[in-house]
Design a protein around this nucleic acid. Structure first.
Lengths: 116, 116
DNA sequence: AATCTGTGTAAGATGATACTTACATACTCG
DNA sequence: CGAGTATGTAAGTATCATCTTACACAGATT
């Protein structure tokens, strides 16, 4: 799972994932969607995605066709789901029992670089 | 979402998240769960988590109590869910129509450093 | 065979991360 | 007030990620 979460943390790689989840694409065409970036850079992202099990490749003649591999996200999905579903449910239950004070988030003392 | 996914890509931070999702904890106690790492290191992870909106803090006297903030994962959950649910469904539909060849994953040509 | 096309890899520059130790600050309690 | 406790921040460093350009190589085309 570790690998997949790390791979998916990069916005470029998420974009690639979305591309190839629509159907298989040759490396070059994928790279074509990222005009600001060199083709090797994209190739390297594809390698990361492949090693993380998020895509699969198949050579066809000259080219190499990439496609999405859904099982790759399974563990990551499980993690998020557990956090998001399970714990959220428990948290709500606890809140209803008023175990926790009604406070909301508090800014850091020194910096105001709070999120959002 | 970007921030959250990046934050969650780190195993230490995931561990912290699980800790504080069980209830609020003071920074020091959280750090106590990571004997191999200095306390400031953990403090810095807490900052990242806070800036990503994944935890919230509340000062109590001397200490600062951290707790999980479920909304922080919402967008990440949405991403994973969309990939995992939506696209998976479409993928299956396509497969049933046999739009795609029956191939399974193919190793990279040169390296055999395939995942798993 | 010679060359073109598609694509991966090597090597290196650069910037971001994740630590460390030393220090600053805020609250508490005698 | 002064010492003690909890915690964040600064500065420095080692490691890792992500690019770039130059190159290698396989398959297609002539």
């Amino acid at each position: 799972m570790d690998e997949a979460l790390r791979a998916v943390a990069d916005p470029t790689r998420r974009a690639i994932l979305r591309l190839v989840s629509d159907g298989e694409l040759p490396a070059g065409e994928i790279a074509g969607h990222f005009p600001t970036m060199s083709r090797p850079a994209v190739s390297q992202h594809l390698r990361v995605l492949n090693e993380a099990g998020l895509v699969e490749v198949r050579p066809e003649g000259n080219r190499r066709l990439y496609r999405w591999r859904p099982e790759g996200l399974r563990d990551a999905a499980t993690f998020v789901e557990e956090m998001w579903t399970d714990r959220l449910a428990r948290l709500k239950a606890a809140a209803e029992r008023e175990e926790w004070p009604e406070r909301t988030r508090t800014a850091l003392r020194t910096t105001n670089k709070e999120h959002r």
